[in-house]
């Protein structure tokens, strides 16, 4: 079963901001994520992953009459934005939740888990054969 794990970032939220982390804490956080990634590669469960550039660099595109309307960031109205994702293929929803929980436990400021919420979304499949 394929799932996408989405990490959202809420700059106004009460999660410990990455800016308050020491260099050592940032390294620990990065190492935690690398470790998960490496394990998922080895187990053949990781299909893809990416971090996304800051929304300040984003462009909003809406189809217009002759030409599309393109708006440049930053978008002050954004309360939350997508920071990155993992696409995984696992045996069960329980396994997807387990991976998400480990990701959410990445250490932040003071070595405490960031407890950043991870969205677990099923990837749509085709239809089963009718019985």
């Amino acid at each position: 079963m394929k799932y996408m794990l989405l990490m959202n970032h809420a700059p106004t939220g009460n999660e410990p901001a990455i800016e308050t982390c020491t260099a050592e804490e940032m390294r620990a956080s990065g190492a935690h994520m690398d470790q998960i990634r490496q394990e998922l590669v080895e187990s053949g469960e990781l299909l893809g992953a990416a971090g996304l550039a800051d929304p300040d660099t984003a462009k909003l595109v809406i189809s217009g009459g002759d030409a599309p309307v393109v708006t440049d960031g930053p978008f002050a109205e954004l309360k939350e934005f997508l920071a990155g994702y993992w696409l995984i293929d696992v045996d069960s929803e329980e396994r997807a939740i387990e991976i998400a929980a480990r990701t959410s436990a990445a250490p932040g400021a003071g070595g405490r888990p960031t407890r950043r919420p991870i969205e677990v979304r099923a990837v749509m499949r085709g239809a089963d054969p009718e019985l």
Binding site: V41, E42, S43, G44, E45, L46, L47, D89
Partner: peptide, 8 residues
């Protein structure tokens, strides 16, 4: 990914 899965 499939190679890893089969090896495992």
């Amino acid at each position: 990914t499939m190679g890893k899965r089969i090896a495992r």
